[in-house]
Design a protein around this nucleic acid. Structure first.
Lengths: 343, 343
DNA sequence: TTGTATGCGTTATCAG
DNA sequence: CTGATAACGCATACAA
């Protein structure tokens, strides 16, 4: 309970507290001998500095925060690895903070900026539609990564790294159309989605229209939030509905790989075969798509490269080397065994 | 930069800082009118209390920390949901902290305990072999959840909630043997694993021996850490090796569902069929197992129940209602389509 | 019901 | 190189 403080260490060593502080933060102007002694005592007594007190007093902590929205998104694990790596390389430290679905990420950011004396922030995932007023409250550079951006007049305030969800989604639908499909169902996000769900749906509409295909509302299926966002279960339920409805379609475009898996399972449980009876495509490029049976055609987002670009941009901004860029990466269509070439 | 503090709010409102403090922490003895005014000003000026300062001063924050090892483990997402729920129900707040693979979770815990004035800690995942000395540094109750526990003389110091990995693993192998399999390969963790990997391997050996089957080292395959822990890719590589080696076997037991998926894919890529040519079983009970084609027989760990038991145990300890228990849950064997009944 | 003063553990400033 | 001391922003005992 009674935890040992810097004062205790100072007393035990017979030095002043500032000397102990210098030892801890390996300040240059301290005698190596005294430093060694202090460090030894610290070890012996298992002293651990109180982070709160440090942050309260410190003016600069060389810390970057990464705020992640959507804990279960497997895409992010790889990106976070890159962040950890690159941030360490710059001798900064990383604070990884999960943001609840219902939480406001900007509030969390503001809070954290004060608490941890941040130098920069990465927002990973989520929606991000915030007022300029609120954004102004963040006083360090920040980068939005893989966040679906609708048109937004606040773009001057931050940098971003993402794929063009509309374009990539259209690319996928284009591909299906080139393969001879015309009745293409889409499994998308919730009806009120304002983010990637809406963008990918938009891409779907664009592609259809470009090819003179009139979109059918009955082929657009929205997620049931009860079943979890972007889950296999959701994909399964939507596809089952679709099959039961008797709608005519030859291909299903799920806007996430996990939903695509659910779609595949629903189709096969229905006694049908992929791709002979129905074609299925996904989006994201998870390993899951590659390892499924059949492997699922998908759009791969270059997560590692995007993570690198994110962190590089952030450090450029921190060092005032450049202003806020908006980098858009190309996705890559990876063909699996889940699409049939129509006669 | 210049962030607004409690003093600023007090000055603006024309009240003392303590009044503002009372408003924030909704203390009972404060006039509703003044409180409203203060809250309004706080809103207007977007004042956010500095967490560091609060924690430094506060003696009790009614906070529980959950330390998660292995960010990408999809099992944990569901458990964390339960934690959030239950902790909120008790009017506590939750700090979710990710622990790097190479980081020492106990150090993180000690640090965090001081920083956030914790009342209790949950360790989720990982190995947990720490000296009694170090464990003594944690002065609040803590529960180990889903952590593979070897025999450990420190068990008096903490509570734990888990499944019996040895027993459940043996149950799975028993099942295969009952189905007529005798040449059963296992895809396990790294060779030096001291945790669930080793326990599940032990269960495998136990079951074989019990049935008079002599384990063959050539059928025990270890993970290649380069390919990521418990990944599909790893399962794929191990199984491919196995197939290429010409070893004789009829079933593969992967100690995680993700590896089981990799195994399935490798077998099918080899032109073989599941379960006709080879049977495959996994462990964990991920949705993935259920949605794979074919669905994979697995052992489901009752994650939600385990999470509930964890949090209940923790609160019991906090309230001194009970001492540290060690709760062991039963797994549930869920049959899929991936096992063949041998003639 | 409210304001004032003190100290939480640390770092920064400045004088030795 | 080192030590005293003043903040950091807040909660709280105590006085009013």
């Amino acid at each position: 309970m009674e935890s040992v403080t810097i004062k205790d260490i100072a007393r035990i060593c017979g030095v002043g507290v500032s000397t102990v502080s210098r030892a801890i933060n390996n300040h240059p102007d301290i005698n190596q001998e005294t430093k060694d002694k202090v460090m030894r005592v610290i070890e012996e007594h298992n002293y651990i500095p109180n982070h709160s007190a440090q942050n309260l007093k410190r003016t600069d902590a060389r810390t970057i925060a990464v705020l992640v929205k959507g804990i279960s998104n497997p895409l992010f694990a790889r990106m976070i690895k890159v962040f950890e790596q690159e941030i360490k390389k710059e001798h900064y430290s990383l604070v990884l903070q999960h943001v609840d679905d219902r939480q406001d990420e900007v509030n969390v950011a503001i809070q954290l900026e004060k608490e941890k004396r941040l130098r920069g922030i990465v927002f990973l995932g989520g929606y991000f539609s915030h007022s300029a007023d609120k954004l102004k409250k963040i006083s360090v550079p920040f980068v939005l990564c893989t966040i679906g951006l609708l048109e937004d007049e606040n773009k001057k305030k931050y940098a971003s790294v993402s794929v063009d969800d509309v374009k990539e989604s259209a690319r996928m639908v284009d591909y299906l159309i080139k393969k001879g499909h015309r009745d293409i169902a889409i499994l998308t996000s919730t009806r009120d989605d304002e983010s990637i769900g809406r963008l990918r749906l938009e891409g779907y509409y664009n592609a259809l229209r470009r090819h003179g295909i009139i979109p059918k509302q009955s082929l657009v299926r929205y997620m049931d939030e009860e079943l979890g966002t972007y889950t296999m279960e959701n994909g399964y339920a939507m596809t089952k509905d679709l099959l039961d409805s008797g709608e005519n379609f030859t291909a299903v475009f799920a806007i996430s790989d996990r939903m695509a898996v659910g779609a595949c399972k629903a189709i096969m449980d229905n006694g049908k075969t992929i791709p002979q009876d129905y074609s299925v495509v996904g989006f994201d490029g998870l390993d899951l798509a590659q390892f499924y049976n059949p492997s699922i055609t998908t759009i791969r987002q270059p997560m590692e490269e995007m993570a690198e670009a994110t962190i590089r941009t952030l450090f450029d901004m921190i060092r005032n080397k450049s202003s806020n860029k908006h980098i858009v990466f190309d996705g890559q269509l990876i063909e699996g065994q889940s699409v049939r070439e129509m006669a």
